[in-house]
Write a protein that binds this DNA or RNA. Sequence first.
RNA 1: GGCCCUGUGGUCAAGUGGUUAAGACACCGCUCUUUCAAGGCGGUAACAGGGGUUCGACUCCCCUCAGGGUCACCA
Length: 499
Amino acid sequence: MTEKVRVRFAPSPTGSLHIGGARTALFNLLFARHNGGVFILRIEDTDTERSREESVAQIIRSMKWLGLDWDEGPDKGGDYGPYFQSQRLELYRKEAERLLAEGKAYYCYCTPEELAARREAMLKAGKAPRYEGICRDLSEEERRKYEAEGRKPVIRLKVPQEGKTVVEDIIRGTVVFENSVLDDFIIMKSNGMPTYNFACVVDDHAMGITHVIRAEEHLSNTPKQIQVYKALGYEIPEFAHVPMILAPDRSKLSKRHGATSVEEFRDQGYLPQAIINYLTLLGWSPPDGEEILSMEKAIREFSLERVNKTAAIYDVKKLTWLNSHYLRELDLDYITSETIPFLVKKGIISEEESRQRYEYIKKAVEISRDRAKTLDELADSIAFFLKDVDEYEEKGVRKHFEKENAAELLLKGAEALEELERFDKEQAEIAFRSLADAMGVKAAELIHPTRLAITGRTVGPGLFDIIELLGREETARRMRKAARWIKESGNLTKAGGEN
RNA sequence: GGCCCUGUGGUCAAGUGGUUAAGACACCGCUCUUUCAAGGCGGUAACAGGGGUUCGACUCCCCUCAGGGUCACCA
């Protein structure tokens, strides 16, 4: 193949970018980059009813966030633009008129109501509902009559009723459709807009698309589109229909399945690297079986031949695993700056504060990120570094605060820290261990209540890392505060018991 | 319902006539350990069913079943 590879992702802006669309875009990108080709973004906004400006913005935002950068398209331009179908109406009109002139298409005056009625009748008769070519051979006189009635016609393509249409698909192989199952479908609506199957073909040709890589739901559209290619005298591109992504209940992805849009995952604290990695593995696998893949490596190894045929159910657990992997492996400054918006959103700190205390936050992230699964979780887990503890985890209280020496241990521990000549985590640990020794308890018996006292929780980073970062004063303060809390709640419990 | 696609463990997924049927996530143990993770070690678990073809089928063919897609003046 000497021709330069040109592929496109062509979403319709009727909603947010969901992970299925993102995966299709990703495979297009991977294929283009692997072959040194061009990746194009084209907005298919021919549905005037449902297309929304906000959707366009959202899709673009999501794609950029994921790092799915296109070479030609909105925001970028290119030699084959415009990249919005709504701005290419002249082209479709011209090509439709050509078909009309060549006798390959015709005006149809049937109204939507008439069509719906006929469709229903056919369905009732147990037949496949298809347009039967009623207006195929209208006389001039009949046409004039309809025009006089004020009917606005659509344009239909004359589709041969004999023979077969063969789709050669890189992923699925040869797929044969009987032409008798096709009908004279509409290529131009009565409002002058093209239909999907027409605009798509006209644009794919006009934009020099060499490989049409799209979701499997379009496989049954392909014979129709091939008919358009033939009628228009266009060269037919290569097709590759990638398997769909299904919800855990095996049905098509929708809102009711929880997070399915890219933005929702972002808001839940998933990293683009994790999502890309996960999506890369859905329907494709590298020859070496490696599962942790950067976009670069995926580009190097990608081929359509290794894309499998079976629909995949997406599994958030594995995405989450990848996310925690990237949370601990990626650049610390990057993870820190990605975490901050979550801290702000949760009201843990202000934006201003986040700038002032950046280095401190970074250290908190450093010692905490190994345990978090999402940025959201990470933000929660470092909250105690940024604001005082006002609650203690209940089961921790029962386990670590209800021992009779708990308060004393905390008080002594705080003292020990304050008496330290040099304060760092090594010294703190030495101090704690010798204090435990002196009091005849195991170090753990001091460590656990202390963690609960200064973090409010029973789980978290190594205690001495926490202490060092939190600082001697704050640590001691929180330990005393907890000791007081223990005594007070102890009294309360007793008082309550006596009544 | 017609047409089309698909069918390897709970999920993702290697595998292209001869394998002890990889690996990953999840799950369960053990280990490490101040907790929780991470890590290390080990474990449970699969070729939808039935017919062929073949010396030999997860691999090829047919049927059944199951799942999905599509049948719009939506894309």
